[in-house]
């Protein structure tokens, strides 16, 4: 009936929860410092001699690997630890509304952190004439990537009341999603490609790297969109199953 208002109420509470503690500010500062460091120092922004944000987006899968689980690890484990889950789930709302509301709040928070990287966009536009369409696609891809990691963190945080366990589980899961399509790993798997020709393709298809690549080049492919949205949907659905089975005892 009024799912939207329920989701909004829960998201609002969750989001204000981030800013009530130093977590939000620490996260944003560290995120901005690290993106800056990787783009300019490790990514060789200037040495490339081209007006693009390739060196900026290149690092996002690795940066998010640790930062996004740090944002998502408390989502449900904190509810379980405090016992507020019992309050929340005895309210006249559906469990999925709570799950979606909490997820959207954290995603919005990550989006905010991403928006705050705008100085780099200004810099590159000041220095040259980049293709802003490609950059826009990169931002979309980055946001979807963050959303996928976040949905996975949401799922692992429902598994345990311990935030550290939740963090580690989600880092490992996300790492798997990176490595499946990371060139050194695919090259290694290539050695077996004779016996299992379709295997590498199948494994690489599960990787966020494969699907993020297109966005970096400025291509918004529907298959990549579907991949990220499917990861988000699947993870949130699994979250609801975990929560239901936890309640059933």
């Amino acid at each position: 009936m009024n799912s939207v208002s329920h989701i909004k109420t829960i998201a609002k509470r969750e989001l204000s929860g981030y800013f009530a503690s130093p977590v939000a500010y620490v996260f944003i500062v560290i995120f901005l410092l690290l993106t800056g460091f990787f783009t300019f120092m490790a990514g060789g922004f200037f040495e490339r001699g081209e007006a693009s944000l390739v060196s900026f987006f290149l690092w996002h899968p690795w940066l998010y690997l640790f930062l996004v689980p740090a944002v998502g690890m408390r989502l449900w484990s904190e509810e379980r630890r405090l016992g507020t889950m019992e309050l929340l789930l005895t309210m006249p709302i559906a469990a999925w509304e709570a799950i979606v509301g909490k997820f959207l709040a954290s995603w919005l928070f990550l989006a905010l952190a991403l928006v705050l990287t705008f100085p780099i966009l200004i810099t590159v536009n000041y220095l040259g004439h980049p293709d802003n369409g490609v950059i826009f696609a990169g931002y979309i891809g980055s946001l979807l990537l963050a959303g996928s990691y976040l949905a996975i963190s949401c799922m692992t945080s429902a598994l345990t009341r311990n935030q550290v366990v939740s963090f580690i589980l989600s880092v490992v899961t996300c790492l798997f999603l990176i490595l499946a399509g990371w060139p050194p790993v695919t090259r290694l798997l290539d050695q077996f490609s004779d016996s299992f020709p379709r295997l590498i393709e199948a494994i690489a298809a599960f990787s966020v790297m494969t699907h993020f690549e297109g966005f970096q080049r400025g291509v918004i492919d529907s298959r990549d969109l579907v991949f990220f949205l499917a990861v988000i949907f699947f993870s949130l659905f699994t979250t609801s199953v975990i929560i239901r089975s936890h309640r059933a005892g």
Binding site: S5, H6, T9, I10, R13, S16, G17, A20, S21, L82, G83, T84, E86, L87, T90, M91, P92, I93
Partner: peptide
């Protein structure tokens, strides 16, 4: 519920407002 759980990072009025909205 047992042990009276509540969102510890919220204020009393914020928490009650949240419950009222839900």
């Amino acid at each position: 519920p047992e042990n009276a759980p509540a969102y510890t990072d919220m204020t009393v009025s914020g928490f009650l407002g949240f419950s009222a909205e839900l």
